[in-house]
Design a binder for these strands. Structure first.
Lengths: 305, 305
DNA sequence: TTTCATATTTGTCTAGGACAAACTCTTGAC
DNA sequence: GTCAAGAGTTTGTCCTAGACAAATATGAAA
């Protein structure tokens, strides 16, 4: 039994750790090495791959560019400079030219200044109201922090501390809202393997303000149990969240299976950065790449009901 | 690229889906088939494994029994009846003579009656105060639900719904408490691979009532980052939580490494059901098998300071 | 009973080969 | 110029089967 990745003692990571860190499967890592000559892991006494931290960082960078639409064949034959150039270019994404307000929030994250973040959080929340706050500040900030983490501008510690504080604050805000028992009833969860659940909380917040009834199941529910939960709770909609780290193939596979297992009168929605990578629509599944689309889905459901 | 199955044709699942649903790796699934003759997937036109839903269910059952301490060699050669029998057998129930109050809470979990749970939650919280409530009700209930889940008395759905509600309620209660900025400063997290974080919330609650200053980092922080966080936040103590599912060997190894990497003036505490399985004490690490020991550690620290 | 040494069990790693879905590029029609 | 169909290339996942070390069980000695 060799379940445990030795900790990064010797400055090298075994393949299982690299899979976890980068989200690239072991198969993919091996086939890239074979085909493109990168990465080039050393070998330990037992002939097993040991990846240098530098290469792991670069793999994470490549993964991010892949998610942005680039192709492996190109990326893996580029040198460091060209890769870094690609990373900077048009990273700002569509119509988000480095929002200075967002950057000032990010500064707080960098300095672990949680008190300041908390103060601004409540200020903005009071000023804008929950729904607008989630859409205009919270969601972009979470995305930005994720990007900054992927670019190695933030450490794991800063990212964890930020996530915990955001969760605490958002849950605190939600605790004050009386559940309305409205419609539709929406079951919120993620598939196994997807741990990120801040997206679920954001959707919960928006649903509550819209008078719908969210049922929060938390992350990582097996498909069979999602179906059972939907029946038992008589949910009108099942809504899943996918982070950008979730393999698009797996997401499509899981959504197809769930759609097949779920009675057709229960709708299936999928949101999060991870669905942006799904090129083709899936029969019977509503995709919500951004939070805005949630309102469209909601309205469509209500018109139909 | 073969990420998406055409369709879950006749109700059979490809190996990647079985991995996702059961938590058993593809490698493990293949090697079990080779060694023990189970599972016995059919093959599609392309020679790839297609698992019958029955077998997937059974694999999930086997996984649960594995986590309870049984060994694969035994489990995989048993027939259905023997397996079901094992599942029913009560795993000892050591020194816990079925507290009737606890069982009545559990009944609420079984029936998904979250409203009733919530009502009782606030009642008991008001009556006992936060610290006593966490120790006398909350912690035993979480333990009991975990056991019930392992015995298949509860489904994944019920367990998830319960966890989410408990987290919401406890965080709600904590939100009302003003952080004191007291001493010691305690960094709360788990090692990679340990996802359970309700334990961290319970410790946070007790620390707040005791006038200490918890810093919640959330689950799964790499050792290197724990060390960095302790430095940056000037934490007096690092406290880790281990659930009973965490492999004792891994826990001992991780604690040893963290102790070595952490400056000696920062204490290291470890709590949760998982530390009960640690045979020998670890140099420089305070073990807290139950919540009671937390107070001992706290008092010891204060006497020393 | 406890402790140590030996034996068995078990999960993960290895190597290349294979294949279909996804993507790119070319060609042809309107 | 735009669109559609076909041909070619790229790419991730699956396959087999052997190897090994950590975890666990077993048996012998104190």
């Amino acid at each position: 039994m060799k379940p445990v990745p030795p900790f990064p003692d010797a400055g090298g990571l075994p393949i299982a750790s690299v899979e976890r860190e980068t989200g690239l499967s072991k198969d993919t890592l091996r086939v890239w090495e074979r085909r493109y000559g990168f990465p080039t892991p050393a070998r330990d006494a037992n002939g097993e791959r040991v990846y240098a931290p530098d290469q792991v960082r670069r793999l994470a960078q490549v993964k991010r560019l892949l998610d942005r639409g680039h192709r492996p064949g190109k990326l893996l034959t580029l040198d460091d400079a060209a890769l870094a150039a690609l990373d900077q270019v048009q990273g700002a994404a569509p119509a988000a030219p480095a929002d200075p307000e967002l950057e000032s929030w990010l500064e707080g994250v960098r300095n672990h200044d949680m008190e300041a973040l908390q103060r601004r959080f409540y200020q903005e929340l009071a000023r804008r109201g929950l729904a607008a706050f989630v859409q205009d500040i919270f969601a972009p900030l979470v995305t930005r922090v994720g990007e900054a983490w992927a670019r190695n501008e933030l450490g794991v510690f800063e990212e964890h501390l930020f996530s915990q504080h955001m969760e605490k604050l958002l849950r605190g805000a939600l605790a004050n809202m009386t559940p309305t028992g409205g419609a539709p009833r929406v079951l919120l969860t993620t598939l196994s393997g997807e741990e990120h659940h801040l997206g679920l909380l954001m959707v919960e917040a928006l649903l509550v303000t819209e008078g719908a009834e969210p049922i929060l199941l938390g992350p990582q529910t097996p498909i069979e149990e999602i179906v059972r939960a939907a029946e038992l709770k008589q949910a009108d909609v099942v809504s899943l969240s996918f982070s950008s780290a979730y393999a698009p193939g797996l997401a499509a596979k899981g959504l197809g299976e769930l759609r097949a297992a779920l009675p057709s009168h229960r709708q299936l929605w999928a949101g999060g950065a991870g669905v942006r990578a799904l090129r083709k629509p899936i029969e019977g599944v509503s995709l919500m790449p951004g939070l805005q689309e949630l309102f469209d889905c909601l309205e469509a459901w209500r018109r139909q009901a």
